[in-house]
Design a protein around this nucleic acid. Structure first.
Lengths: 128, 128
DNA sequence: CCGTATCCAAAACGATACTG
DNA sequence: CAGTATCGTTTTGGATACGG
């Protein structure tokens, strides 16, 4: 592979990258990886700050992409389990790498951000 | 680390993950990793389908986060080079992992997507 | 060449109400 | 419990024009 992301159109890699370029997808894959199969509301609580609508949407696209499986148990009330497929578990390894890097370097990013904002603040902007 | 993405508020990891959850960021880091320092228009051509506005925006946030450095050579016409910082180069390793996975599994995703769409199509929807 | 500024369209997201 | 449907807002992105 001489070039990783050949400019567009004919490049399949990009369509996959676009899947991962979504924070909800990353949180979801991470949660399912950590805890195994989970129910809808369980996932919602675990992720936090996600609405039903977005959770549903995200789960559907992951199902469509063959990364997550959906199993319905016809009980009352209904029970629905979401789990990683083999492909999804495989991808979750990548997510694990992302998570570890984030954990390890979060403070460096935040520090850089502070420094940048402080400098911007120091610019000689007239009071009015 | 018992839990990778503790639900929100107090979690620094998430703010970093949110940086990477952006296709332009991923493309940019990949391009700079592959080819070393690049000029503005060079980056634009390399990535393709990105507008000046978005390229500028993305570069600024990466600069703010300490991932990319910006060097201006005061020639006429001006020359501006963008390069990975040490931190950015470090993160680009993660991007490399993403890129490789995408390359290797793109067809599986696309196949799953086709299968899903075909099934949806097969649903017994009345003509009207 | 390397941007910024502005306006506009499209997509993502949140809140809320309702259903099997 | 596990969703769907609708509406309004916010965010993101594209197109274009202009400036150092």
């Amino acid at each position: 592979m001489d070039t990783m992301f050949p400019p567009p159109g004919n490049c399949n890699s990009r369509t996959v990258i676009d899947v991962l370029a979504n924070k909800w997808v990353i949180y979801l894959l991470a949660a399912l990886r950590e805890r195994g199969p989970m129910r809808f509301n369980e996932l919602a609580r675990r992720i936090g700050n996600i609405t039903q609508k977005v959770l549903t949407q995200t789960l559907r696209t992951l199902e469509r992409d063959g990364l997550v499986s959906r199993t319905v148990y016809p009980t009352t009330p209904p029970r629905v389990d979401y789990a990683l497929t083999d492909l999804g578990r495989n991808l979750s390894e990548v997510v694990l790498v992302i998570g570890e890097w984030s954990h390890d370097h979060a403070d460096e990013i935040l520090t850089a951000r502070d420094r940048y904002d402080t400098k911007a603040q120091a610019a000689p902007v007239p009071v009015n």
